[in-house]
Design a protein around this nucleic acid. Structure first.
Lengths: 167, 167
DNA sequence: GCTGAAATTCTGGAGTG
DNA sequence: CACTCCAGAATTTCAGC
């Protein structure tokens, strides 16, 4: 990677686990002044190395009790697919949306208030993709050991309806 | 959710998309003084609503060129499985590790320097789980529309070897 | 990338409803 | 009990080197 040195990489690694660390503390860790760290951060953000900052939130506190992954098997490809996916990625319910290789071509991780809301989301997805979609394989995420680089210390989440299947 | 009001939820929603927002600006958004926001933040962290803060980083800048998801099909269940999974979750390569319902029981999202490193990781996984593991289905993640609530504006990531399959 | 000073933010305690 | 206000401390920011 051009214009990136080991100190930049160390900054990225630290920031990934401690997103709200101060510039002062960050400078202490990589032996740089706070001002220099800030300059590097601006460079890294401009380069696109840092896409943004996020807090890892327990979805239940936002009354989103259902968390699911969906794997989309497509029948055809094309630029219009990406356009549709971008639209769904912008949705309030979607946490992550990826293009993948493998048996399926799209992976979505999303949260919903309940199963009904999830079903409606899946229906919209099917409707938007139309003939391009073969099927959706899905399942609920009922426990998280690590999420977005943040480890989860002994979460014990009880009831999960063990629902899953094809849509 | 007990002890949580709409302002708390709004704070969580904002923080999820702007992890490094200042308390002052956050207070401006929800009509609260910075001190009150700080008190609420401490409460939310203590309650476990906020698990941590993270920056969304382009893995290529950390020389991790291979990004994959793995779906683990287990033959048996048991507490020792969770112990093993926690060990792998702590790994430097793993971004997220979930327990899920559906055809497979575990989902891992991870990054590697190259395919070799990924293969070694999978081998360790198979070795640790032993007879408890049926198979690993996997694929590469070659494009991200949204990641950890951070939308990706028009990323164009080129070459991906279209490798995938079973391990 | 550093320094140093100014602006901003953060923090903890006292006070208010 | 949650919030605000306020002053001191820390951090951030920006200029110039």
């Amino acid at each position: 990677m051009p214009g990136i040195d080991e100190k930049d990489r160390e900054i990225l690694r630290i920031l990934r686990r401690e997103g709200r660390i101060t510039l002062t503390e960050l400078g202490r860790r990589v032996n740089l002044s706070p001002a220099s760290v800030k300059n590097r951060l601006e460079k890294l953000e401009k380069l696109g190395a840092i896409k943004g900052y996020s807090a890892v939130i327990d979805h239940a506190f936002l009354d989103r009790y259902v968390r699911v992954f969906m794997l989309l098997k497509l029948k055809v490809e094309g630029p219009e697919i990406d356009w549709i996916l971008a639209k769904f990625a912008a949705t309030e319910n979607v946490q992550s949306l990826y293009r993948t290789t493998g048996r399926t071509q799209v992976m979505i991780i999303a949260e919903f208030k309940d199963m009904e809301e999830m079903k409606r989301f899946a229906a919209r997805l099917k409707n938007s993709l139309g003939n391009a979609l073969d099927y959706i394989e899905w399942g609920t995420i009922y426990q998280s050991f690590k999420e977005c680089w943040i480890e989860n210390k002994a979460e014990r989440r009880g009831s999960h309806g063990h629902k899953a299947g094809h849509l």
